[in-house]
C-alpha cells in the first residue's frame, strides 16, 4: 500500500518533484526506490498478525523485531487481523500480501495449523511456510491450588468413575489434543470444554467450574500461587524450577505422543516470495539468525516475564516442518472430536 511512500522518498526529491508527479506516485503506490533496484530491504516490512494486539503473539513479535530491525535497518509494521482463531489473518495475508519478501506473517503455528484440519482454508496450504520459531511452550494439565487433585493419577482414577470436566482454550489446540489423547489412552472419561482463550480457561479452573484445565505452560507456571501443573505433554520439563512434581505424560503413562507444543510462534512467508526473491529471503534469514545470539535480545525477552527456558535459541526448517506435520497428524486422528462429527 502507500504507507511507506514517504519513508523512502528523500526530502530533496520531494521538494524538487512536481506536485503532479507526487500525486501520480501516491495513486500508483509504487515505492520509488524499488524501481531503482536498491538494496533489500529499502522500506519497512509489514507483518500480518492473526491475533489481537496485546496477546502473546504481539508480545513476542515486538520483542523479536525490536532487535531484528537493527540488523535490517528498517522498521517492522505490525497489522493485527484477529478473528476466527487466526483464520482471518491468514486469509488476509494469503489474499492481499505481495510476494516480495516485504510482507510477512507472524502466528502461533500449532493452534493455527489445526484450523486447517477442522476446515480447509481458501488458499493452498503449500503456498506458505513458517520460519524463525521463537518459543516452545508445551501443553500441560493444571488444577487450582484449592483442588483436591494433587497428582494426575488421581484425576485419571476419578475419570474412571465420573466425567472429568477439562477447561481448554479451544478444541483445535495442541493442549486439548493432549487431554483427549490421555483420556482415550487411560480409559478415563475426559470432557473438554472450550472456554475461548487462556484467561477464561484459568477463570473456569480457578472458580471450580472445571475440574482441571489444559493450556500452554508459561501462563500457568507464572501463576504458581493459584495453580498447580500436574502433567506435561513433552519429553522434558522445560522449567523444572517453576513446575515441580509434574509428570511427563509419555513417560508416566507409556504413551508416545509427539511433543504437543502449544505455544510455537514463528514467522510465515509466501512460498512464491521466496522463489521469486531467494536473495531477499536469504538476507532475512541471515539477519534473523543473528538476533537469537544477541545479548540485547535476551534482555528484551527477560522483560516479558515469560520463563526464559520457553524461548528457543535457534530453529531449523526441518524441525518446524516436522512439528507442523506431527500436530496435523494428531489433529486428523481426533478430527471427529474437534468437529463434533463422527
Amino acid at each position: 500500500m502507500l504507507d511507506d511512500y514517504f519513508d523512502e522518498l528523500d526530502r530533496r526529491r520531494f521538494l524538487m518533484g512536481s506536485a503532479a508527479a507526487l500525486g501520480a506516485g501516491i495513486l500508483a503506490g509504487t515505492p520509488a526506490s524499488e524501481a531503482f533496484g536498491a538494496k533489500f530491504p529499502s522500506r519497512n516490512i509489514k507483518v500480518y498478525v492473526p491475533t489481537r494486539h496485546g496477546g502473546g503473539a504481539s508480545r513476542n513479535l515486538e520483542a523479536f523485531t525490536s532487535i531484528w530491525k537493527n540488523y535490517l535497518g528498517v522498521n517492522f509494521q505490525a497489522s493485527y487481523y484477529p478473528g476466527a482463531a487466526g483464520r482471518v489473518g491468514y486469509e488476509k495475508y494469503m489474499g492481499i500480501a505481495k510476494p516480495d519478501c516485504y510482507e510477512l506473517l507472524f502466528g502461533n503455528m500449532g493452534p493455527e495449523v489445526l484450523n486447517w484440519v477442522v476446515k480447509k482454508p481458501t488458499f493452498d496450504l503449500n503456498a506458505y511456510f513458517y520460519f524463525g520459531q521463537m518459543d516452545r511452550d508445551p501443553g500441560q494439565i493444571f488444577v487450582s491450588r484449592k483442588s483436591k487433585f494433587k497428582h494426575i493419577d488421581e484425576i485419571v482414577a476419578e475419570g474412571k468413575k465420573r466425567t472429568i470436566q477439562i477447561g481448554v482454550s479451544r478444541l483445535a489446540h495442541p493442549a486439548t489434543l493432549g487431554a483427549l489423547a490421555l483420556g482415550r489412552h487411560t480409559g478415563a472419561k475426559f470432557n473438554v470444554i472450550p472456554l475461548s482463550g487462556g484467561k477464561r480457561t484459568r477463570a473456569g479452573v480457578a472458580t471450580g467450574e472445571m475440574d482441571c484445565g489444559a493450556l500452554p505452560s508459561g501462563g500457568i507456571a507464572r501463576r504458581g500461587k493459584n495453580f498447580r501443573i500436574l502433567a506435561i505433554f513433552d519429553d522434558t520439563n522445560p522449567i523444572p524450577d517453576k513446575i515441580k512434581n509434574a509428570v511427563l505424560v509419555n513417560k508416566h503413562f507409556g504413551m508416545n505422543l509427539p511433543p504437543l507444543v502449544a505455544g510455537a510462534r514463528a514467522f510465515g512467508i509466501k512460498r512464491a516470495a521466496v522463489e521469486k526473491y531467494p536473495d531477499r529471503f536469504k538476507i532475512l534469514i541471515d539477519t534473523m539468525n543473528k538476533v537469537y545470539g544477541d545479548p540485547a535480545y535476551q534482555k528484551v525477552l527477560k522483560k516479558t516475564k515469560v520463563p526464559m527456558a520457553l524461548f528457543t535459541k535457534s530453529w531449523s526448517r526441518e524441525g518446524i516442518d516436522k512439528y507442523v506435520k506431527d500436530i496435523t497428524a494428531i489433529g486428523e486422528k481426533y478430527k471427529d472430536l474437534l468437529t463434533g462429527k463422527s
Binding site: G83, A84, A85, R87, V88, V118, L171, L338, T339, G340
Partner: peptide, 12 residues
Amino acid sequence: VYETPRGTFGFL
C-alpha cells in the same frame, strides 16, 4: 464449541 461458522454470509 466446534467453531462452525453460521449465518456469516461468507464473511470471515
